[in-house]
Design a protein around this nucleic acid. Structure first.
Length: 107
DNA sequence: CATTTGACTCTAT
DNA sequence: AATAGAGCCAAAT
């Protein structure tokens, strides 16, 4: 089963994100070996079947720890509640505490 | 087959 | 420090 596309590979990486942890689009893209395709990672999420397929797109955030305002699965507000439910820490700015919850592949 | 677009990121001002 | 603009590359039309 080779890669059916960049998207499928992106889902595979995002799917490996443990609970209570978040990853940036760029980081996921880097794990794929293509740090320049950060845009496609997010693009893949939008086009992806969603968490229904086991792709926790809500665990994927910007490098700043912020989300995609208006494009989140129901609003960044919902994502905050969801991540908090997984044990992710949040800042007063409404951004994920990357320093504490950014997923580190291979660690 | 060529053009447009897009959940990003970096660099410059 | 914050804001603005350009770059990137693959998939969809």
């Amino acid at each position: 089963m080779a890669e059916q596309g960049f998207f499928e590979r992106a889902y595979d990486v995002v799917r490996q994100i443990p609970e209570g942890r978040v990853a940036t689009y760029g980081q996921v893209a880097r794990l794929l070996g293509e740090p320049r395709k950060a845009r496609f990672v997010g693009f893949a999420m939008h086009s992806s079947p969603g968490m229904r397929s086991g792709v926790p797109c809500h665990r994927v955030v910007f490098k700043d720890g912020s989300l995609a305002p208006g494009f989140a699965f129901g609003g960044p507000d919902a994502q905050r509640a969801l991540l908090e439910g997984e044990g992710v820490s949040f800042l007063a700015d409404g951004r994920v505490n990357m320093r504490q919850c950014q997923w580190e592949a291979g660690l």
